Amino acid sequence: MSGRELTLLGEGRVELLGRIPRSSNQTFLVRVSCGDDSAYAVYKPEAGERPLSDFEPGLYRRERAAYLLSESLAWGLVPPTVIRGEAPLGIGSLQWFIEGDFREHYFTLYADSPETHRDLSQIALFDYVANNTDRKSGHVLRGHDGRVWGIDHGLCFSAGFKLRTVIWDFAGDPIPETLLEDIAPLADAAPPEVAELLDDAEVAALKHRVQRLLRERVLPVDRTGMRYPWPLV
C-alpha cells in the first residue's frame, strides 16, 4: 500500500456511515476524504469500548501498535492504522477497510486455498509475538487482490500470556530462517513507536516471547487444547 492510505486516514475528513454489526465493541464504517479522494475505513472509538477486567481502556492503541509492529517487521499483515483524536465519537483507531469476499475467512482459506498457507502461518507467528487474545477465523481476510490480512488487534500485547487463536494447523512447524531473522531484534528491544503505546511489563513480555521463539524455532503448540477464542468465526 502507498502513502495515500495513511494520508486519508490521518488527515481526511471522517464521515460516520454506520455501525458494523456483530462486534463486541462499537465499531463503525466511515468514509475518509481529502478533496476529491475518499475511501472506507473502520473506526473504533475508545468511547465504544466494553469495559474489560484484563485490559485497560484504550484498545485503539493496541490496534495501532499491531500495525506498527507488522510494519517494523516489513510483513505488511495489518492494514494501515492510525489514531485520530478529532473523529466523530472521540479518540480511536482508524483502519483501512479491506475490500474482499467476506464469505472467506481463516477456515475456508486453509481448507480451500493452499496458496495462502504461508501467509496464514506467518499470521500465527505474528499472533504469538503480539500475544493476540482474539484471533477468530473472521479476523483473517483476503483482499480482492489475493493478499491476506489480519485485522482486529485490540486485545493484544498483554503482559500475561493470553494467546487465543484458531490458527493451530501449523503448530510445531519450523519457523523459516528469514522470519527468525526478522523477529530477532525484538528479543532485545521493541520498536520505540510500539513501546510508547504499551507499558513496561508488556514490552518486557514481548521480548521474552521472541526470545522463546528464537530458542525453540518452531510455531507454538497448544498443549492445553483450550487456547481458542469464542466464537470461533
Results as ranks from 00 to 15, higher is better:
residue 9 L to R: 02
residue 11 E to Y: 04
residue 12 G to Y: 01
residue 28 F to I: 11
residue 28 F to K: 02
residue 35 G to P: 13
residue 38 S to M: 03
residue 39 A to V: 02
residue 42 V to E: 02
residue 43 Y to A: 05
residue 45 P to Y: 04
residue 46 E to I: 01
residue 49 E to L: 03
residue 59 L to H: 00
residue 61 R to D: 04
residue 62 R to V: 00
residue 63 E to T: 01
residue 65 A to S: 04
residue 65 A to L: 06
residue 66 A to E: 08
residue 68 L to W: 05
residue 68 L to H: 04
residue 69 L to H: 01
residue 74 A to R: 06
residue 75 W to C: 11
residue 76 G to R: 02
residue 77 L to V: 06
residue 78 V to P: 03
residue 79 P to Q: 09
residue 80 P to C: 08
residue 84 R to V: 13
residue 90 G to D: 15
residue 93 S to Q: 13
residue 96 W to P: 11
residue 96 W to K: 15
residue 97 F to M: 14
residue 98 I to A: 14
residue 99 E to A: 15
residue 99 E to P: 12
residue 99 E to M: 15
residue 101 D to M: 12
residue 103 R to M: 14
residue 103 R to S: 15
residue 104 E to G: 10
residue 108 T to S: 15
residue 109 L to S: 10
residue 109 L to H: 11
residue 112 D to Q: 13
residue 115 E to T: 11
residue 115 E to L: 08
residue 116 T to F: 03
residue 118 R to K: 09
residue 125 L to I: 08
residue 128 Y to R: 08
residue 134 D to M: 03
residue 135 R to W: 10
residue 137 S to K: 06
residue 137 S to L: 07
residue 140 V to R: 01
residue 141 L to R: 11
residue 147 R to D: 02
residue 150 G to H: 11
residue 152 D to S: 05
residue 155 L to Q: 03
residue 155 L to P: 00
residue 158 S to G: 12
residue 161 F to N: 10
residue 161 F to M: 07
residue 162 K to C: 05
residue 163 L to P: 02
residue 164 R to Q: 13
residue 168 W to T: 05
residue 171 A to F: 05
residue 173 D to N: 10
residue 174 P to N: 04
residue 174 P to E: 03
residue 178 T to F: 02
residue 181 E to C: 04
residue 186 L to E: 05
residue 189 A to W: 01
residue 198 L to Q: 07
residue 200 D to P: 00
residue 200 D to L: 07
residue 204 A to K: 13
residue 204 A to I: 10
residue 206 L to S: 09
residue 206 L to Y: 08
residue 210 V to T: 08
residue 213 L to W: 09
residue 216 E to L: 14
residue 223 R to D: 14
residue 223 R to N: 11
residue 230 W to A: 07
